[in-house]
């Protein structure tokens, strides 16, 4: 009797959770005119794999990604949850207006999709798809993503190679349109939780001014990325 009930219980539990392996075709498009994306982390994971929450402080591993583009910490977090992970589909930076595509096979129970990457040149700006529930119905789904600020670093807009967590400054300006000798826009971060990025200021002085960023190249308006997911 006891055995019967427990088997029945297991059967009910299995049917109530969406456990279904899926094959996804994912396309990521950089919608901006002058911002580069660092190598992406793309993962299907379970409900415990949420990488960030707006209004809350960033984890140390999210900070590492947002300040320097290093996704190894977040990838390890998700590996511990048996997530299906693809890293660096673009094999390097994803330049403005460019797209990259990948295929992701998900295993049973990994019903949420997350995608993150750092925006360059910014101090701690990142783009993120955050635990998007993968539809069970086959079809093509389009999601536009906004830019977030990790809230972990002052947006001084100084390009000095600072990419390690806690180090001030922007690691690099891949566009080559930036300047040098900026005094720094600010030395503090008023909102230390994750929020929608206010955008970069920049200036028109290539050898001075407040910012090392170029105000005609390095600003953006949301959205900054488009994700197209085809559920096969």
């Amino acid at each position: 009797m006891k055995l019967k009930y427990s088997i029945l219980g297991a059967a009910i539990a299995a049917s109530s959770i969406q456990v279904q392996a899926q094959q996804l075709d994912i396309k990521i498009t950089n919608l901006t005119q002058g911002i580069y994306f660092t190598p992406f982390l793309v993962a299907a994971h379970n409900a415990d794999g949420k990488l960030f929450s707006v209004g809350e402080e960033a984890s140390a591993n999210l900070q590492m990604m947002a300040e320097g583009g290093n996704v190894s910490g977040l990838s390890a977090d998700l590996s511990a949850l048996s997530a299906d992970i693809k890293e660096n589909p673009a094999e390097g930076l994803l330049a403005p207006a460019m797209s990259t595509s990948l295929m992701l096979d998900t295993t049973d129970g990994n019903n949420y999709l997350s995608i993150v990457s750092m925006l360059l040149p910014t101090n701690d700006g990142f783009v993120g798809l955050n635990s998007w529930m993968i539809p069970t119905e086959p079809g093509t789904y389009t999601i536009d993503l906004n830019a977030y600020d990790a809230g972990t670093e002052a947006n001084d807009e100084i390009v000095n190679g600072g990419g390690a967590p806690g180090a001030p400054g922007i690691p690099v300006d891949p566009s080559g349109h930036g300047g040098t000798g900026g005094m720094g826009v600010t030395d503090m971060e008023q909102n230390t939780t994750i929020h929608i990025h206010r955008g970069s200021l920049g200036d028109d002085d290539a050898t001075g001014g407040k910012s090392d960023l170029n105000n005609t190249v390095h600003r953006w308006l949301n959205p900054v990325a488009r994700i197209t997911v085809t559920v096969n």
């Binding site: 901006t32 005119q33 403005p96 207006a97 953006w220 308006l221 900054v224």
Partner: peptide
Amino acid sequence: IADHVTMHPG
């Protein structure tokens, strides 16, 4: 900057 249609930065 590049000969592509993108979102406008404002």
